[in-house]
């Protein structure tokens, strides 16, 4: 995939916000002094009257967004995932989740691929935190095309949503014909020996891992799970029935994210062995994104090795 175009999903977010802002005057955008990095600033540049920088005050930003939503406006709230999901968790729970307000929390710089900033900024807990809030949608796009469609889908949806975008430019995997639907996963590679379920920018790595596995005689199905909550249970159960073993891949702690969501569904419906690939009870550290992805087992080679061992044992 070396010749494939690379785009950071945060850029996709910024561009789509501008596009939506032109057709819907009720969209307002908030940021907490990271508008240049989250790309919400693209909206701010074109629509300064509907863009509110809240300063470095994320808890208030969430509450302001909640108040704007009660007025019938559609607030998109952006900052880094660490400060969008972790710091104001309780504000999201009580001021957005409980009143079920139409606030779109769109975080950039999620996961370990944040890189050199180190563990303080590598948010690997956001899926887990957001999943616990009743009726909160939790999503993570795998590439530019999916990210754009996801932003448009949550714009149409009435209720609280959390989307995690990535800092790094990653391959554009999908083509323009791709149709994202909230709550629906996508089989991107078919296979029968094991199913690899991935969310976010690790998807292309999972696809490459399937190619490696294929060369070793292992037929791996690859599923793109853009929506972590509500999880596409049907697709997960079908994969368990047809493949017998499941591997989950996410740039997130193995606690409470995609892996445990999949385990939860399967243990209650069709128990099969599951291997969770993710950050295993440790903090990250400063390094290049690529080095970190490799270190934490999130590259194609690692995923293929882990899956091969899992299938054979």
């Amino acid at each position: 995939m070396a010749d494939v175009k690379k785009i950071a999903t945060r850029d996709s977010y910024g561009a789509t916000l501008v596009e939506l802002g032109r057709i819907d005057k009720n969209i307002v955008v908030l940021d907490a002094d990271l508008a240049g990095s989250t790309k919400s600033g693209m909206f701010g540049k074109e629509f300064p009257d509907r863009f509110f920088n809240c300063g470095i005050a994320e808890q208030n930003m969430i509450g302001v967004a909640a108040g704007l939503a009660t007025m019938g406006l559609i607030p998109f709230v952006s900052t880094f995932a660490m400060f969008a999901a972790c710091r104001p968790y309780e504000q999201i729970r009580n001021s957005v989740g409980y009143p079920h307000l139409n606030v779109k929390i769109c975080a950039s710089h999620g996961g370990i691929s944040v890189g050199a900033d180190g563990a303080s900024h590598q948010c690997c807990e956001d899926f887990a935190l957001m999943r616990t809030i009743p009726k909160m949608l939790v999503m993570c796009p795998s590439d530019d095309i999916e990210a754009r469609q996801m932003v448009k889908a949550v714009h149409k949806y009435d209720g609280p949503c959390y989307i995690r975008f990535a800092r790094s430019a990653t391959p554009v995997y999908h083509d323009e014909n791709y149709k994202f639907e909230i709550g629906k996963g996508e089989v991107v590679v078919d296979g029968a020996d094991v199913a690899i379920i991935a969310t976010g920018i690790v998807l292309p790595e999972a696809v490459k891992a399937a190619e490696i596995l294929n060369s070793k005689g292992i037929s791996a199905r690859v599923i793109n799970m853009g929506t972590i909550k509500p999880l596409d249970e049907e697709l997960v159960i079908k994969a368990a029935k047809e493949c017998g073993k499941i591997v989950t891949v996410e740039e997130h702690t193995i606690f409470g994210g995609l892996g445990e969501a999949v385990c939860g569904v399967l243990s209650e419906n069709f128990p099969v062995p599951v291997k969770r690939i993710g950050i295993n009870d440790v903090f990250g550290f400063s390094a290049d994104a690529d080095e970190l992805m490799k270190h934490f087992g999130l590259c194609a080679d690692n995923i293929a090795d882990t899956t091969e061992n899992f299938v054979k044992n």
Binding site: V64, A65, G67, A69, T70, M71, N94, S95, P99
Partner: peptide, 23 residues
């Protein structure tokens, strides 16, 4: 506005006041 967790209501009120200006 749903309230009870202290400190949060005033933020929502700010959002309402700002929102009324936008609208």
């Amino acid at each position: 506005m749903s309230t009870g967790s202290l400190g949060q209501g005033i933020s929502a009120a700010c959002g309402m006041a700002k929102g009324s200006k936008v609208l």
